[in-house]
């Protein structure tokens, strides 16, 4: 079919606009790939000449920055385990039991969750954590994140578990399994894709968060990478672009690896059960 001239022009314009938008999003990523390997990297995009690992060597010698990556890992994994385990059990209970008003409970939790981990609640959170004597500890960060992420995680998982027929556990119990056995043998493996989604989501959230660890932690040896990135800024606040780029790349690797691993091993799914 031949296009009329206005339709043709419209398509050209649309393609041009899409290409422009794509470029705007792609440019930082291209910079992000080139700059770490360029000893003289600046904010403009230049192909490294020669390619070098010298930026990385310098970053690796920065003990504070390296320790920070380890701290990020502790806080993220700690938070993920807590969120994953608690959300699974809570969501399972909310989905399967007949507690009156459980729908309201979930929605109220969800409403407050965006407040809890947001900046608005920073002062009360600080006061609570301080009163608990947990200021300047990994546990403070882990608990705060768990509290903030749990409601949303529960909400996602409850929807997921709702979509899984109850008859799985029922058939296990009729066959002789206790409720606990039925949960671990039958329900948990079926829920697993949902848990994986929540775990990845929680990990990315904690790994990338700046404000909470920045406020709850004091000592350098506990700071996560999101905070440590500022050690690549000079006293005057200008970034050392070369080192910043190299560190950023290292910083984003665990998240990329996690995505690749999860999609290879489990695949991302938002439903359960066998199709009828």
């Amino acid at each position: 079919m031949k296009l009329t001239f206005p339709a043709f022009a419209g398509r050209i314009a649309f393609s041009a606009l899409a290409a422009l938008l794509g470029a705007i999003f792609a440019l930082p990523l291209i910079w992000f790939i080139f700059a770490p390997f360029n000893a003289r990297a600046e904010l403009g995009i230049t192909v490294p000449d020669p390619w070098t690992l010298s930026n990385f060597m310098t970053v690796f010698q920065n003990n504070f920055a390296m320790q920070a990556l380890w701290n990020s890992l502790i806080q993220s994994i700690g938070g993920v385990i807590l969120v994953g385990a608690a959300a699974t059990l809570a969501a399972y209970a909310l989905s399967r039991s007949s507690i009156p008003g459980k729908g309201a409970v979930t929605y109220i939790l969800l409403l407050f969750s965006s407040v809890v981990s947001g900046s608005a609640a920073m002062v009360p959170i600080f006061l609570i954590v301080s009163a608990m004597g947990l200021i300047d500890s990994h546990l403070a960060v882990i608990l705060t994140f768990a509290g903030g992420l749990l409601p949303t995680a529960m909400f996602i998982l409850r929807d997921f578990i709702d979509s899984i027929p109850k008859s799985y556990e029922e058939s296990a119990m009729v066959a002789g399994a206790s409720p606990v056995q039925a949960f671990f043998d039958v329900a948990l493996p079926v829920i697993r894709p949902g848990i994986v989604v929540v775990v990845v989501w929680a990990f990315v959230n904690i790994w990338g968060s700046f404000l909470i660890p920045f406020i709850l932690l004091r000592s350098d040896k506990l700071m996560p990478a999101s905070v440590a990135i500022y050690s690549f800024y000079s006293e005057a606040g200008t970034p050392t672009v070369t080192l910043l780029a190299a560190y950023s790349l290292i910083y984003s690797l665990p998240v990329i690896i996690l995505y690749l691993f999860v999609s290879w091993k489990f695949g991302f799914r938002f439903f359960g059960g066998i199709k009828a």
Partner: peptide
């Protein structure tokens, strides 16, 4: 509790465990 009644049941949707093969399903 159902587990203590020594009964078996066939469900309308069969309720076969999707992560287990047939041998494990039947032997559960």
């Amino acid at each position: 509790h159902p587990k203590d009644r020594q009964i078996s049941m066939v469900f309308q949707d069969y309720a076969l465990y999707p992560h287990m093969n047939l041998a494990d399903n039947i032997a559960y």
